[in-house]
Design a binder for these strands. Structure first.
Lengths: 135, 135
DNA sequence: GCAAAGGTTTACGTTAACGTAAACGTAAGG
DNA sequence: CCTTACGTTTACGTTAACGTAAACCTTTGC
């Protein structure tokens, strides 16, 4: 069911293959399809996922780790191919890209400050521990 | 209603002061209180927010930008004071801090890769634009 | 032939994070 | 005294992102 030629990439995946690999339920994967984020082929009734489908799923999950909604993740994925010919649409695409970049930069700043505060918190906690153990 | 001595920090804020400053509704602020993230004093019935309350609110909103739930933000805020004497609790606090750090590092990696992909997407989009304008 | 393993659709349930609205209190200004 | 601005409580409504369960195929191993 998962023909793997010696050491490279599987040609296709079942839904439970992907659910196991990424630690999510099959319900979740079908839900993403319902929302238009995935569109696997069918062999009869069953879904069969290509390596590209798997990549899309990875992108969705990365988006989740960054706090993106599924709509945001879909937009980001759609940014990957500028097949949307129209000049005006391409301009708006560039705008969208710039916006995401700004958001990511804000997140970077947020992470930096939070990291620093965690360092301080750890230090204070260790100090508190030392006081509670020695005397 | 907001005594400010020349150039420093206001001593207190009303709920609409804060809602205006941060671009959120008063409903949201009260909701956070309901969830135990804020505990402003009262003057009669009205809420009166201290500078510390305002900082807590800022931390909550930063958490939101990073995709944290309110429960997660509360935990993070609670990490700031190791008054929780018990040694065992302090150990678990250190664990929590370490976990958050790991999560933030994952987010950093995610942002880095996404940034790179946005660069590529922009480049392809500009190329597509050039093709659609010149000929 | 049949049970077990994996897949499917359909549909109702749940949780977080607020939105929205009603009904009311209170202090200041004209 | 009356309006206006700002605040309050209470409560039902909404959206996203799934969970859960029922009822049903279909292929495979014994």
């Amino acid at each position: 069911m998962k023909p793997e030629s010696s050491h490279s990439e599987p040609a296709s995946y079942s839904i439970s293959d992907l659910s196991r690999e990424f630690g999510i339920t099959t319900r979740t994967i079908r839900f993403y399809e319902d929302k238009g984020l995935l569109a696997p082929e069918r062999r009869g009734q069953a879904r069969i996922y290509s390596p590209e489908d798997r990549v899309r799923l990875k992108l969705i999950l990365r988006g989740k780790r960054l706090g993106f909604s599924l709509d945001e993740s879909r937009e980001i994925i759609e940014m990957y191919d500028p097949a949307h010919g129209n000049v005006e649409q391409l301009q708006r695409l560039l705008q969208g890209i710039e916006q995401k970049r700004a958001q990511l930069q804000q997140q970077l700043r947020d992470i930096q400050s939070l990291m620093g505060e965690l360092d301080d918190a750890e230090e204070r906690t260790r100090a508190s521990l030392a006081k509670n153990i020695s005397p």
